[in-house]
Amino acid sequence: MSQPAHDRSAADALLLSSLDVRSSLYHLGQYCGAWNASTSGRARASFHLILHGDCRVDLGTESLALAAGDGIFFLRDLPHTLMPAGAPPAAPSRGMQPLEPRQPDGTGLACGFFEFRSGLDGLLADALPDYLLLRASDARYAAARGVFQLILDETADPAASPLVVERLTDLLIFFMLRHLAARDPQAHGLLVLARDPAMAGLLQAILAEPALPWSLQDMADRLHMSKATFHRRFTLHSGTTPAQLLQALRMRAARRLLEQGAGIQEAAERVGYQSQAAFSRAFQRAEGMAPSACRKRQAGAV
């Protein structure tokens, strides 16, 4: 069922007021021959937009094919490498070339970084997905596709302005986050709560020490509120309950621990679970995989 127009407008206004995203271009051009590119290793969120041609991105645990009109947005610094779609060609790389004239084997890219200027980067990176993927063929991203077309039109102009591309990318990222928030109530709640300094401080404290009990009274005391006032304010702004978001933050922290090589029991205890079985059930519900599968996938990548 589609969301009523007035509800969606209100949600958009709330989300826009909660975000202040700024992008900066790093690469704008095309690669030919044998090449690879990456924005990882700089401790920053980043993006890659495929302007023409195709390529693939190697994430270690998986490889994704990307075609013209696709984009990938890394919400945290995730190791990755972009490279030609097929087998590496024999022709050596000549470095990044101008977008025009297009080469038969060229892949046009707009790559760069983005940040949430209200200082939410670390909080969002720990609690949101590792990356968002925009597919040109996905009808769900109609609004984002319109912005992407403006980027394509701008970069096709010999007098293209990097500043215009950056501001359009800001808007493109907003639409991607709006899509995430629309299908993930907890993500929407986090984006809104993180704008409130008091609530953001609470969320950061939970992420720093997820093993603490964090009862409703504990959370209310930290904000110097009664339990009733805290619960009402929290649910009104986030659309989710403190207990639901607490579990989501704990499972996200547990995933990080498992990816770093922690054992299942260790990860369970470090996010507040004494029972490995209860932890495994909660992790499966939140992450869509068993903790053992998460560890195996990471081990395979290594």
Rank of each mutant, 00 (worst) to 15 (best):
L59H: 04
C294T: 07
M199A: 14
R102G: 01
M96K: 15
D196C: 01
R76Y: 02
A37Y: 08
A34H: 15
S215V: 05
E166I: 08
A136T: 13
L25Q: 10
R140E: 05
M1Q: 11
R233K: 06
A37Q: 10
H27I: 09
P242Q: 11
S275I: 12
K227C: 05
G201A: 07
P210V: 07
R295I: 10
F114M: 02
M96S: 11
Y131K: 03
R102T: 03
A267R: 04
L212N: 06
A253F: 14
E209S: 12
G53D: 13
H27Q: 10
M289P: 00
T241L: 07
L120R: 08
R255D: 04
L257S: 06
H237I: 15
T81R: 14
A110N: 08
A278T: 13
D221W: 15
A187V: 00
Q298Y: 03
T81W: 03
S275V: 13
N36E: 12
H231R: 14
D153F: 04
A43C: 08
R145P: 07
A301Q: 06
D170Q: 09
A228K: 11
S2D: 12
S280G: 13
S9D: 06
A91Q: 08
G119M: 02
S226Y: 05
R117G: 11
L171C: 14
P197G: 03
T61H: 09
G108F: 02
Q204F: 00
E269G: 08
H188M: 11
A139S: 14
L216G: 07
M199D: 03
G288R: 11
L216A: 05
G108I: 01
V147T: 13
D58I: 10
V164D: 03
A228I: 13
R76A: 02
R76V: 00
G60S: 04
M225E: 12
Y31S: 02
A181P: 02
Q186G: 05
W35F: 14
Y131V: 03
